[in-house]
């Protein structure tokens, strides 16, 4: 109940301001207009064809890029967590990937590849790999030296060491990395689509922005936030709680 209170107060304020102060529904849509747009989106109706097709394309790009970034970031992170040389070698490229604005990356990739699916996917991979890499390397560095010595003495190497030791050891870091990078991905996938693609939610947002219609833009914003929160609440949250409980039990 307490969690819902700020949301209710916020919607009340929003309604008051857009009904009595900023009375321009096209630019400052009241909640009921946004709700109507939400229902329109959910009924698969949009100006550039079925909305589900656009949402599906965006989601597919996000999931593809996020999965690739998660695998690459985790593998490189494990390596860097064990070998200082690899970490030092990777540190500058990682900071560059993280600090160069996503729009700049999209433009660079657009010049390289043209208007293709590879542009938002590779921009996302570049941007999402970096935080996963840093989180994983930090997790591996925190592994107990005693356990590393045990693995060495039992000749635990290669695949067994990765899947049977490193990954379970850093499980809580991995879930945190997945959480952060997924949320980050939702934020930047639209930017990439707005600039460089013929379909996706980004293109719909760009369309409504060009026609100065704010209600659908806010509706998409709410929808994407809801998707992000649902994934966090239903997948990452329970996973992290379970790992934390197991880890506390074994202390």
């Amino acid at each position: 109940m307490l969690n819902a209170a700020p949301v209710v107060v916020g919607i009340g304020l929003w309604w008051t301001i857009t009904t009595f102060v900023l009375v321009q529904p096209r630019l400052f849509p009241p909640p009921q207009d946004v709700l109507a747009e939400l229902l329109r989106i959910l009924s698969n109706d949009g100006p550039l064809g079925p909305t589900y097709a656009h949402a599906g394309a965006t989601l597919l790009r996000l999931l593809t890029a996020w999965s690739i970034a998660f695998v690459i970031g985790t593998l490189l992170g494990v390596l860097a967590g064990r070998r200082r040389l690899v970490f030092d070698f990777m540190a500058n490229p990682v900071w560059i990937a993280m600090s160069v604005p996503s729009v700049v990356w999209v433009f660079i990739l657009l010049v390289l590849f043209g208007i293709e699916n590879i542009v938002p996917v590779s921009a996302l991979v570049l941007l999402l790999t970096a935080p996963v890499f840093l989180g994983t390397a930090e997790g591996v560095r925190a592994i107990s030296k005693d356990l590393l010595e045990m693995c060495d003495s039992y000749h635990v190497r290669g695949w067994q060491r990765l899947t049977g030791f490193y990954l379970p050891s850093i499980a809580s870091y991995m879930v945190a990395n997945a959480r952060v990078s997924f949320a980050y991905g939702i934020r930047i996938v639209l930017i990439a689509e707005v600039i460089g693609l013929p379909n996706g939610v980004g293109i719909l947002v760009a369309y409504w922005s060009d026609t100065l219609f704010m209600a659908p833009i806010v509706a998409w914003g709410i929808l994407l936030t809801a998707v992000g929160m649902a994934v966090d609440l239903l997948v990452f949250g329970p996973l992290q709680r379970r790992i934390r409980q197991e880890s506390e039990l074994s202390r």
């Binding site: 005693d146 356990l147 010595e149 039992y154 000749h155 049977g164 499980a171 197991e246």
Partner: peptide, 15 residues
């Protein structure tokens, strides 16, 4: 590989 180690602590994997 002909040797096996028992440490001061058990050093078991909790998972």
């Amino acid at each position: 590989r002909q040797m096996a180690y028992v440490f001061q602590g058990p050093r078991l994997l909790r998972w």
